[in-house]
Amino acid sequence: MSPPSPVAQRQPVLAARGIHQRFGGVHALRGIDLELFPGEVLALVGDNGAGKSTLLKILSGNNRPTSGEVLVEGRAHEFKNPAEASAAGIATVYQDLALALDLDVVENMFLGREVSVRGAGRLTGHLDRALMAKRTREALDRVHIRIPDIEARCVDLSGGQRQAVAIARAVTWCDKVLLLDEPTAALGVEQQQEVLNLITSIRERLDLAIVLVSHQLSHVLEVADRIAVLRQGRIVRVFDRDEATSSSLVAAITGLTEGDEE
């Protein structure tokens, strides 16, 4: 059903094969097959309860599937936790950003990966602030994010800036796949556009594959190369960017026929 991808000749960096997920009596995912290629943005769309978040939780190592497997560069992985997914090169930016808002930008960039000074300071875990600040600036510059004061606490940043910090952190520590869970939800219109520009910028500059989960079809149409539609735990259709329209997506999402267009 899905048309040949422009990058079909390359090995998928991330693949899901026959993923099923049951929660008690609920069959949330019913056989998901998905391939993701380096340098592409794949959007996952679907109604509430279609299985987008469940699928993302499996790919990010938060949940383990009832059956099926996740392959990274052709090798099967069973992630027990997000740290294992991260070690395999998959980073996730969660809806709630996963920042420690009371800490500053530098501390958040290095949260859980703090760098100690050399010598005696190692014994106490004395932080090398200068080095971490320098690397934070480099990381932000790499994806053209402007944060005026990286010593500012994240709580004092705008929602868009916080999302940018979360994304910058993710791309700093992963080298293969970036999973974005509703990155534009809870943001103002202007800030939503900033985040979309950032996604495009990352796609152009870094050789990452991006999975974007979003409700906002206009955003999906703007930045995605391919759009996978989930309905009732199945991928019902994968659109290429050129063939997808807002109305064809809505038709696929809801399962209602769309007049004569199909």
Partner: peptide, 11 residues
């Protein structure tokens, strides 16, 4: 600040 964030960051 956020126990969940800390956990997700591998702490």
């Amino acid at each position: 600040s956020s126990a969940e964030s800390a956990k997700r960051a591998g702490i």
